[in-house]
């Protein structure tokens, strides 16, 4: 049995310790904002924050999360007003939107560490997050906008 925190609430996983956090969140905890895209750490749709750092939920076994604090898209902000979420809406970044929760988590982590990233830093930080709809130009623009908003 492992105990950890998800979005401020305590959880305990008492099933298969090898179960990836992704499936724990989606199937057992009902937090479907974290998406499945590849299961192998290749696409970033499952990105969550673990103790504030971005991680792929499909690669994290629940058995190894003892004491960790997980933030999912549902817990990024109380009301969807995180600057990254706002910038995403202002620029209509989403097409189908499926990858965007992972993109937003990754972008939020980037800005927490690097408040004013260069274009190269943005591409480097976001290159693990696939978007099959091709929203990359707007993702770049939204990160720049959120960075500006955060600075003022």
């Amino acid at each position: 049995m492992t105990k950890f925190i998800v979005n401020g609430s305590s959880h305990q996983a008492d099933g298969d310790p090898e179960m990836p956090l992704l499936w724990y969140l989606r199937d057992l905890a009902g937090l479907t904002g974290t998406k499945y895209g590849c299961g192998l750490g290749l696409c970033g749709t499952c990105t969550v924050l673990v103790d504030g750092r971005p991680a792929r939920a499909c690669l994290l076994a629940v058995g190894e999360l003892e004491g960790r604090a997980i933030t999912t898209i549902e817990g990024l902000s109380a009301d969807g007003m995180h600057p990254v979420q706002e910038a995403w809406r202002q620029l209509n970044v989403a097409q189908c939107g499926y990858c965007q929760t992972g993109q937003i988590m990754q972008a939020a982590a980037l800005l927490a560490k690097t408040p004013d990233p260069s274009d190269t830093e943005i591409d480097a930080a976001m290159s693990g997050n696939l978007c099959r709809c091709g929203t990359y130009p707007r993702i770049r623009a939204a990160i720049r906008q959120a960075a500006k908003g955060g600075a003022k």
């Binding site: 937090l31 479907t32 904002g33 974290t34 999912t72 898209i73 549902e74 990024l76 969807g80 979420q85 995403w88 809406r89 209509n92 989403a94 939107g97 965007q100 929760t101 937003i104």
Partner: peptide
């Protein structure tokens, strides 16, 4: 987008 809030909040 009408679905903006839902998409950006999961």
């Amino acid at each position: 987008l009408v679905d903006n809030l839902d998409i950006t909040t999961g």
